[in-house]
Design a protein around this nucleic acid. Structure first.
Lengths: 110, 110
DNA sequence: TCTGTTTATCGTAATATTGCAATAAACAAA
DNA sequence: TTTGTTTATTGCAATATTACGATAAACAGA
């Protein structure tokens, strides 16, 4: 076991879970926030910004990349990492719809 | 190791990560969606709704509860689980602000 | 009290995640 | 070519997650 039974759930549920899981670590939240607040985006800056060893940061970057939240282009010696806006544009409205759905509920039982 | 270094990140980053991590499994996404679409909320329904064994569902419910996304009240024989709207109200705007910040970026390097 | 229903917990196995030192790979510049 | 810089990969240890069978706990109703 220890293996998520992906095939038992809808594609939508799995995609949202992959997106959320990628943001499920404070280091990865910090990376996303850093990429959002800077206009340029070079990996060295990210390593210096985070309180973790370089291989650990590299690993978190790879996870964000595999989940599709960021993309990295080779730029001479360094690598240019930046946000992939698509998943954010896709899932942000879903969190809003959660709030809206909850707001319109009639029965209060808890 | 295998232990997240929570103390190295801001409270905000940790809170967002806890919220996202709770939604980082399709079964837990399914539970939240089910609780949103039903007005009543009894645990038995959730177990029947999910394609997983009862102890597994119970475990996912506990994780959602510990992360603060749902709350459960004892209701006679059964337990009434429902959404805790607060974290959703708190974090949905953050995902929106991510999209807005990204939209106003000047430099395109990737 | 006994029986069935509902949910939680325990125990266990398989796998994933987190973190880092050591090292490699890729490249720029001297 | 050699040296330094930047990022990725490997290997490993510690811990967490996922899943479920077995069992317990809590309660309703007969």
């Amino acid at each position: 076991m220890g293996l998520t039974k992906t095939d038992l759930f809808t594609q939508h549920q799995n995609e949202l879970a992959v997106f959320a899981k990628a943001l499920g670590h404070p280091a990865r939240v910090a990376i996303i926030e850093f990429l959002l607040k800077t206009d340029k985006c070079i990996c060295g800056d990210i390593v210096n910004e985070l309180p973790l060893a370089q291989p650990t940061v590299s690993q978190h970057l790879r996870e964000l990349k595999e989940a599709g939240l960021i993309q990295g282009n080779i730029e001479g010696n360094a690598i240019c990492y930046c946000i992939n806006p698509r998943p954010f544009e896709k899932f942000a409205p879903i969190f809003n719809s959660f709030v809206l759905q909850q707001g319109t509920k009639k029965v209060e039982c808890c």
